[in-house]
Every structure is written in structure tokens, then in C-alpha cells.
Amino acid sequence: MISINQTIIEGFRLKGISDVPELQVLIFLLVLLIYLICLGGNLTILLLVCCDRHLHTPMYFFLANLSIIDISSSTTTLHRMFVITTTHNHMVSTSACMTQLYIFSTSTSNEFYILTAMSYDRYVAICRPLHYHTIMSRRLCGLLASACWGCCFIEVVPTILFISRFTCYISKDIDHYFCDVLPIRDITCSDTSLVDLYILVFGNVNAIILLFLTITPYIFIISCILRISSSTGRRKAFYTCSSHIMVVVLFYSSIILQYLVTGSWSNMTFNKIFSLFNTAVVPMLNPLIYSLKNKDVKSALQRKLCGIFLFCKLYLCFKNFGPS
């Protein structure tokens, strides 16, 4: 029998990241700055990989996929917080909430797969350099990327179907700044056993398997690096994969903090903080890590900037000498 405080609703009210009015403007400006850096950095990486032929390699192909994921994840989660702060409209329809949850979940899931594919690419580059271009062909890279995108889109569907079947809620207030699985599960009075079982068995186990598949190539990479006789060769080999290692550590640590650690805490403030780190800070840092530590990216950026400067200079010259 359904109690009187249970209700069937057609929309939710997102509380936002903070209930303190004095902090909302400061948080808005800080997150907006982070988002603009994230968007600018990832778009720069994406455009450079598409336009510069020197970056038409498997490593940068997967890096471009990672940039698309970061843009998608940060935009779909942070835009609602911007709307809440600027318009004070906290309401979101059920369909919009499920759409946001689906896009965010697929982006997070896809990052697991793409990072695994990138670790395999680094393994081939360091352990089998003579066969690198033969093994990491365009066809294989396309198949790996297609498999990553296909798996993430299919993997998230059962979770969305289970949550969309919730028929009643004890409240319409979601204590978060975007629609996520745990905050929605906490306010429903429907049976959540299928969602919990799917997340436990498939979500967590799949994440552990992908973490194992991401780490295993680096065991062989470290073994291969240690066998290199010259210190210069060892530094060069480690430099080749150091950026990817930093991104993997950053991503997995943020996921662990957001779901495995804070998932059991009653104080949702910590969950929001770690969610913000995962959806804003990590996507901002990824392009910075690759651009600051990667000579190819910096060289490509310099070439494009020089080309733009030369084009502007020639345009001004023709404009000055043109008919008055």
C-alpha cells in the first residue's frame, strides 16, 4: 500500500550545488571559468588533430575521441547548473532528466573504454615500435573507437530503463546539480533492487575489468623500458606514455571518490564536490596535460598560430594597398 507522502511526478527539482545564496555567484563564476577553459582546451585539441596532418596518428585519434567525451560530459552536466544560477529555475522534466543521465553515463562509460584503447596503443608504440603502423592501422583504430562508442551506448540503456520504470517518489527534490543515478535512487519509493544489482554486477565489475586491461599493458611497458640500456632511451619511452598515465590516474581516482567513497555518505555536499571535480576539473585538466607535456601538440599549435598570424598580416597588407 502506498503511503500518503509518496507521489507520482512528471518532473524533478534540482537543488543545485549550494543552498547558500552568498556562495552561488562565486561558485557560478568559478565553474564558468573552469568550463570555458575545458571547452577551449578540448576544442583546440580536437581542431588540431583534425587539421594538422602531423597529428594524424592513432594516439591523437584516440585523444580527439577523449576530447569529444570531455566536452559532452561537462556540457551536459554543467549547463543545468548555469540555468539554475542565472534563471533560478530548478525544475527539469523527467524526459530531460533521463536524457541528461543517459548522456553523462555514456560519456563516463566511454572514457573507461577509450583510456583502455589508448593504453594498448602505448603498449604497441613502446614494446613493438617496428610494427606500430602495421598493427595500429586506420582500420583497427576505427574498429576500436566504434567498439568503444557502441559498448557505452548499449551498456547504459538498462540503467535508464530501470530508473524510468520508477513509479513513485517520496520527493521531487534531487539533492544535486544534475540528474545522477544515486540521487534519483535515494528519493524513489519504488523497488531499486534491479538498478542496484545491475550497477554492482555489471557497472562495477566492468569498471574493474577495464582498469585491469588498462594497467596490464603498462606492466609490459615498464618491463620493456627497464630493458632499454641507455638512460636517454628510457626517458624517451617513459615520456611517450607519461601523459596517458596521468590522465588514467586522474580519471579513476575521481570516479572512486565520487561513487565508491561518497556513495555511502549521507552528506551529499561531498558527493557534489567530487562530482564537480569529475565533470569539470578532470575534463579541463586532460587537454592541459597532453598539451603541456607533448611536443607534437605544442608544435602543431605553433604552426597553426603562425599560419593565422601570417594570414591576418597578408590580409591587412592587401587591404592597405587596395583601392581606396
Rank of each mutant, 00 (worst) to 15 (best):
146 S>F: 05
100 Q>K: 10
151 C>N: 15
128 R>Q: 08
210 L>V: 13
14 L>C: 08
133 H>G: 08
61 F>N: 08
151 C>Y: 14
186 D>Q: 11
129 P>Q: 00
192 T>D: 09
260 L>Y: 13
149 W>L: 11
70 D>Y: 07
110 N>C: 15
312 C>V: 07
232 T>H: 11
9 I>F: 11
49 V>F: 03
311 F>D: 02
7 T>D: 02
304 K>M: 03
315 Y>T: 04
257 L>I: 05
53 R>Q: 01
151 C>W: 03
21 P>D: 12
158 P>R: 06
151 C>F: 15
263 G>I: 10
201 V>H: 06
221 I>K: 03
252 Y>H: 14
269 T>N: 09
126 I>Y: 02
161 L>F: 13
183 P>C: 14
210 L>M: 14
78 L>Q: 10
249 V>W: 11
33 L>D: 00
110 N>W: 07
245 I>V: 15
55 L>P: 10
45 I>L: 14
269 T>H: 01
105 S>P: 06
269 T>D: 09
53 R>Y: 02
119 S>F: 06
125 A>W: 09
182 L>P: 09
231 S>W: 00
162 F>H: 14
212 F>M: 07
238 F>P: 00
283 P>K: 07
168 C>W: 05
187 I>S: 14
20 V>S: 10
253 S>A: 14
256 I>V: 12
223 S>F: 06
132 Y>T: 14
64 A>G: 13
165 R>C: 13
85 T>W: 07
131 H>N: 08
261 V>K: 10
282 V>M: 05
70 D>I: 03
4 I>W: 04
69 I>A: 11
147 A>H: 15
105 S>K: 06
203 G>I: 08
240 T>S: 02
310 L>F: 01
239 Y>F: 06
28 F>P: 03
114 I>H: 15
220 F>S: 06
237 A>F: 00
260 L>E: 09
179 C>T: 11
224 C>Q: 13
88 H>C: 00
25 V>Y: 00
263 G>R: 11
252 Y>M: 10
28 F>I: 00
273 I>W: 09
299 S>M: 01
150 G>I: 12
87 T>A: 03
120 Y>R: 08
172 K>H: 14
179 C>V: 10
188 T>M: 03
301 L>M: 13
84 I>V: 07
276 L>F: 05
240 T>K: 00
44 T>F: 01
250 L>T: 13
177 Y>S: 09
242 S>P: 08
173 D>I: 12
142 G>C: 06
39 L>I: 06
53 R>A: 06
200 L>Y: 13
142 G>R: 15
171 S>F: 12
305 L>C: 09
36 L>H: 01
61 F>S: 13
299 S>T: 03
223 S>M: 01
230 S>L: 01
80 R>A: 07
86 T>C: 06
241 C>L: 01
282 V>A: 11
220 F>W: 10
306 C>G: 02
211 L>M: 11
127 C>H: 00
18 S>G: 00
141 C>P: 08
